[in-house]
Amino acid sequence: MPLGLSSLKKSIWIYHMACSPCNNCDIEILDLLTPRFDVERFGVVLVGSVRHADALLCTGMVNRQIKPRLQEAYLQASKPCIVLAIGSCAINGNIFRKSYNMAGPVDRAIKEVDPNAIIVYVPGCPPKPEAMISSVVKAIGFLDTLKAKAK
């Protein structure tokens, strides 16, 4: 899908999903929109519906209750769609990984419904806003390689 990929590169629309995080990753994501970091200058916009999104920003350790909702939301997103697992929680569960309510980190939950999903990992607790910006840039670079492959 070269057309989808090339248009995706221009302006990434993101949708933010909090899958039982501690909230800190989430406020750092919001920080991105405000005057200090202002990601809108790169064309990154936070949208209100998952159906408009090109990238899902998932934070948190994904508990049993939120997991089906996360999977449902991922399936509703228009493809191609990048998943950014933001924070250590989303990558491996962080300090919560032994919890009885843990239902697997973000990548496992997503790969259960789509084994080919593109997942970008942004480590840190919380990651700095700069790290998040750089991860989006890297994801765009990754799309380039995908595009080359598709040709």
Partner: peptide, 21 residues
């Protein structure tokens, strides 16, 4: 309950020094 992580239970498995983290 969308955010329930069982922290109280986890705290019982950590040392006193780790609990503040």
């Amino acid at each position: 309950g969308w955010n329930h992580r069982g922290i109280e239970k986890l705290a019982q498995g950590l040392t006193w020094d780790q609990v503040p983290y």
